[in-house]
């Protein structure tokens, strides 16, 4: 509790300093925090900007699609490579190497393939979200204690029961961590995709506001996105804590 109070105090202090420093400076370059709520309201009330709710809705749908695809592909490939030892040995280093390449370099080619519309954003969110999920499945499978499998087999467990009652729970903590990281990256993928080139979505809006030197609106949108991502990640964190209740 004390930590929370101190953290809030530090944040407020920083905002205060920012406010004082920004006050005498050019408001186009330096947005004072006090200007943000008003700007956000303006964004909501269809001013010179396209209406906000439609963009938010589009971005949410893109994220949902990207994440659903990332999870499906990641789980599928992770389990295929994790359970087939030979395939795993062939492909896992390739996967890890691909993951190490900064993903943004793929974006131009995705735009070429999928155009400026939502498809290229979904593809980019999928690409970014896929790796943590697939790699966490691989790591999770490796973490399953062989002895626990022996114990289960001695009590008559077949392959299905071993998978559902031993392997899956044993790897759940790692898996949920990967799903959480994948979600964060899918969000980043979609937003970056929108900012780099699009005609709709939150990222487009951010780019638009920024391009027209509507700096307060721009900052307001950033705060909005930040709050949404924090809330999402907080929910994922709660889920993770629940899954690992037995471990901590």
């Amino acid at each position: 509790m004390k930590v929370l109070a101190l953290r809030a105090a530090v944040l407020l202090g920083l905002l205060g300093v920012w406010e004082v420093v920004a006050a005498p400076l050019n408001p186009i370059l330096y947005v004072a925090p006090s200007a943000i709520p008003g700007a956000l309201l303006r964004v909501f009330r269809v001013g010179e900007l396209p209406p906000l709710p439609e963009h938010v809705w589009l971005t949410l749908r893109e994220i949902a699609a990207a994440y659903a695809l990332a999870v499906s592909a990641g789980l599928w490939l992770g389990f295929v490579l994790g359970l087939q030892k030979t395939l795993g040995r062939i492909y896992e280093p390739i996967l890890a190497a691909l993951y190490a390449i900064p993903s943004v370099v793929w974006y131009p080619s995705l735009m070429l393939f999928f155009g400026l519309g939502p498809a290229s954003k979904i593809a980019f969110g999928l690409l970014l979200g896929f790796f943590p999920v697939a790699l966490s499945v691989l790591a999770g499978i490796r973490q399953v204690d062989r002895h626990l499998i022996t114990v289960a087999v001695s009590m008559g467990a077949g392959p299905g029961a071993i998978f559902l009652k031993v392997a899956l729970p044993a790897m759940s903590a790692t898996l949920v961590g990967g799903l959480r990281a994948g979600l964060a990256l899918s969000v980043v993928g979609v937003l970056v995709g929108e900012i780099l080139g699009s005609r709709a979505g939150i990222g487009y809006l951010i780019n638009y506001a920024y391009g027209l030197f509507m700096t307060a609106e721009y900052a307001g949108l950033v705060v909005l996105v930040g709050a949404a991502v924090l809330a999402l990640d907080g929910a994922a964190g709660l889920l993770e804590a629940r899954v690992r209740r037995w471990a901590s």
Binding site: D145, V151, A170
Partner: peptide
């Protein structure tokens, strides 16, 4: 039924 040196309890 079997019991092992490592109890092998399911931690979850």
């Amino acid at each position: 039924a079997m019991v092992f040196q490592d109890p092998g309890l399911f931690p979850w």
